[in-house]
Amino acid sequence: MSKILIVAEHLDGKLNPATAKCITCAKQIGGEIAVLVLADAVDAIAAEAARLDGVSKVLTVARAENAHPLAAVYAPQVAAAAAGYSHVLAPSTTFGKDLLPRVAALLGVAQVSDIMAVDGAYTFKRPIYAGNAIVSVEAPQDRVLLGTVRVASYAAAGSAAAAAPVEALALDVALPSHTRFVELKQGKSDRPDLQSAARVVSGGRALGSAENFALIYKLADKLGAAVGASRAAVDAGYVPSDLQVGQTGKIIAPELYIAVGISGAIQHLTGIKDAGTIVAINKDAEAPIFEVADIGLVGDLFTLVPELERALG
């Protein structure tokens, strides 16, 4: 039976929902699931992790050096904690992508990036070429398997009836001081997080200006949706880069995705492949976005978007 260690992602004392998605992936691998919490103050995060369905225990390492998720600081601890485990997983977010390869190299093993399906304990599917091909990958069974989990492919684990036990883990690991956290400038927090939102409204270059993007924000606020953008809109300077959806931006899977004035370049479509329902509003009936849209509406966004916002009451 597999023994799976999941590295918890957290910020400001709260567990990131991506962790609960890793647990769903781990359940498909099957076996005992432990969550590892590295932080300066672990209690609130550990309590949250302990209540997730499928978790058999939570391991914590509380150290001042763990206040910020520095890969160089976390990696030797994860590598030490991995002893006795068959699998180590982390979400394929910027946190997991930064950290897990460093752990893999310390352990001298390969890593399976962006696991999107579990075919067996050591066989997985993952996307390559920005999702334009899917490969089946087989990893050796005689080594610990390291994998990042593509969060768009998994629903979050629910809550358990009883909380799993929480244990402090004593690790005798020297930590480097060559990497220092300076600051984190967070995007606006009054709207849902783009990566995990159930609804997203995105705008493209057809918006024409940063001022006109107010239309997108107003519609998003009416729907309780996060705001996204195409690369063209980001490159034109209408919105900051952390709103970019697509191959080189965020890959998301909301229940509802509304693309406004987005033509649908391959690089954008790659980021929304797993969305539940895609709505496209565009004045060009030939735009490629209509090839993937579940519901399409051809027309001028500057009349249709305010009209839609009013229709939502």
Binding site: V109, T123, A133, A139, V292, G296, L297
Partner: peptide, 22 residues
């Protein structure tokens, strides 16, 4: 250490419907 056993195209999305107004 990893062996790719198979390549496949991604699943296609079904073509949707067009609506005429809001």
């Amino acid at each position: 250490h990893l062996r790719i056993t198979r390549y496949a195209p991604p699943p296609k999305r079904q073509k949707g419907v067009m609506v005429k107004d809001v």
